[in-house]
């Protein structure tokens, strides 16, 4: 199968949906001739022009609010917020307007709206460009939340998001944009609410998203050499959340370890731990463990940054300790 980058997979998903539906359009900062802050790929603008690929001023509330207004009146916008830390600038529109629109108005309107935004940081991006705020959005009823970890998932999930008649917050990880992976030429969609089992194992279930999937997979491969079999699960979407796959994995392994890049307190790992404690307690041999970033803003200097967010070494030693090996 051909291999393309995560960034190209995103562009391809949008392009295909724009080809199919003339209501699909994109808006955001520097997405036109510049080709996106991180992508440097003006393909969409070259193909569809200013009308359907709209550069905006630095007006995040307007980006989201205009997209919402357009979505409920016949369009199918894909809005881009340049990085997820500045989703905060558009929070009223996202939380009070986008998320509430359908339910509050009696279910009488469709909201086919996608907000794409990069998460992550690393490489000295510092406190205001490194946050992983996905659990904020998963906490708000009325928003679907996707978080792909591979080019294949990015394309398939984004196409589903654009087709959806519900609002989707689509988190792309900056550090994955250049990652290449197999993506079929043929069209495909990945349904929301289906976790992906990346590797099967019997000793421990590890749940991770986005970049952490890759770190965990490296650790799992290392531990395999010591005869430890780790099952790695990527939920792919936090809302809807596929708890069945995780519960049935724990039934097999008896142990749950959650890793995320976001801070620990009220991170999505807390939700996963709670679900398993409520519904899978009897399967558990050991207490649930979480490994997350420390509860601090992400610091600038390399060694502090590396310390703040779980790296492979920390994941490895935490899992080894957890398994008592």
């Amino acid at each position: 199968m051909r291999e393309i980058s995560y960034a190209d997979a995103v562009v391809e998903a949008i392009e295909e949906e724009m080809d199919k539906h003339e209501e699909v359009f994109v808006l955001g900062e520097d997405i036109g001739r510049y080709g996106g802050a991180y992508f440097a790929n003006p393909k969409l603008w070259k193909k569809f022009g200013d009308e359907r690929v709209r550069d905006t001023p630095i007006s995040e509330s307007a980006i989201v609010g205009f997209a919402l207004g357009a979505a409920i009146t016949g369009m199918r916008p894909v809005a881009e917020i340049m990085f997820s830390d500045i989703m905060t600038v558009a929070m009223d529109q996202i939380v009070n307007q986008v998320a509430k629109m359908r339910y509050m108005f009696g279910g009488n309107v469709k909201v086919p709206l996608v907000i794409r935004t990069p998460i992550g940081g690393f490489h000295n991006s510092a406190a205001q460009h490194s946050q992983s705020l996905e659990s904020w959005f998963a906490h708000v009823p009325g928003l679907k939340v996707a978080m792909p970890s591979s080019p294949y998932a990015a394309k398939g999930l984004l196409k589903t998001a654009i087709q959806s008649n519900n609002p989707v917050i689509f988190f792309e990880h900056i550090q994955l944009y250049r990652l290449k992976g197999p993506v079929p030429e043929e069209e495909y969609y990945i349904p929301f609410g289906e976790a992906n089992i990346l590797r099967e194992g019997t000793d421990l279930t590890v749940v991770a998203s986005a970049v952490m999937v890759h770190r965990v997979m490296n650790v799992a491969n290392k531990l395999e050499e010591q005869g430890i079999q780790i099952e790695v699960i990527d939920p792919q979407t936090l809302c809807p959340f596929d708890k069945e796959t995780i519960l049935s994995s724990i039934k097999k392994t008896g142990r749950l370890f959650v890793v995320h890049q976001a801070c620990k307190t009220c991170g999505f790992g807390a939700e996963i731990a709670a679900i398993v404690a409520e519904e899978g307690f009897d399967y558990l041999i050991d207490p649930i463990q979480r490994l997350a970033a420390y509860d601090i803003p992400v610091p600038f200097a390399s060694n502090m940054e590396d310390f703040a967010i779980p790296n492979e070494q920390r994941i490895l030693s935490a899992i080894t300790e957890f398994l008592g090996k």
């Binding site: 630095i58 830390d85 500045i86 600038v89 000295n124 510092a126 406190a127 205001q128 460009h129 803003p297 610091p299 600038f300 200097a301 502090m304």
Partner: peptide, 22 residues
């Protein structure tokens, strides 16, 4: 070393901070 280029401040000099958010 917590701030870096986009986040220099010095409150004694009245520099209330550079900012990563426009």
């Amino acid at each position: 070393g917590k701030g870096g280029s986009q986040h220099i401040a010095n409150f004694d000099l009245g520099i209330l901070g550079a900012n990563g958010i426009v």
